[in-house]
Design a binder for these strands. Sequence first.
DNA 1: TATTGTTATACTCTATAACTATA
DNA 2: TATAGTTATAGAGTATAACAATA
Lengths: 140, 140
Amino acid sequence: MPDPETRIAESRRISRLLVLASERAKSGFAASIAPFGLPIPLSRALLMLGEPMSMRDLADLMVVDPSYITGLADQLEARGLITRVPGADRRVKLLAATDDGHTLRASLLAALTEREMPVERLTAPERATLAALLERLLAE
Amino acid sequence: MPDPETRIAESRRISRLLVLASERAKSGFAASIAPFGLPIPLSRALLMLGEPMSMRDLADLMVVDPSYITGLADQLEARGLITRVPGADRRVKLLAATDDGHTLRASLLAALTEREMPVERLTAPERATLAALLERLLAE
DNA sequence: TATTGTTATACTCTATAACTATA
DNA sequence: TATAGTTATAGAGTATAACAATA
């Protein structure tokens, strides 16, 4: 077993690599959606609305506070991309993409698909290994 | 070769894992330094000042705008953790940790060292593999 | 003319707390 | 009493633009 200092240095190095890789992934996302003029958080939300979803569920999915969803929904609605539709439980509002919303969502997906993603640099088995290691890292 | 849609779905999944792993690493950093009461950006800057460094170089190292460094330096100076010392080129100011700054910096390093880092969950060969894959991902 | 650092300002993303209306 | 959503506000982290001093 290597000495503690060496282990820690290696951990810190890997952490730094993870942060860098994550930032690169985020930049790639931002670059892909930039041509459409929809801000990043709105794009993230719209992409999740392939099917109508309660605001609470969207907050859980995006891992943000529900109060934040109100603002996102307001902006998406102002752009005509979604509507709030009442749910069965009358406290609940479902966010549903409009026709325009579905169209833009499809364009965003296509742009994300077209962009050559950095992970494509790895071979298929390497990608599988990377995914497995990251999942072990995040487990529990 | 798998069809494009499958490849893209896998890429997006790996990107999400990278972002999650990065956020976990950042949380770990924040938790380690929290007991010392020094805000995250100030801690990050102080940790880089083992040796005196020009403000421009620090901006490059932290990958932020130089104007932002002015604010960080002001706050670190107000806390008595660094001083600005003139450089050879008289436009340049070097940021140098004070005795207190070095002491706190050592404490921060020790706290980061003591914390069990998430990457410790992986075996040594797994860590090596992960690091290598991330480096390939980030290479040019 | 190009570079270092500074100032004032403004932006993005997000949380907290207190509230309303249902359940 | 607990939950869904809203409102107003505030915070962290960081950039932009215009500037002074120096090279």
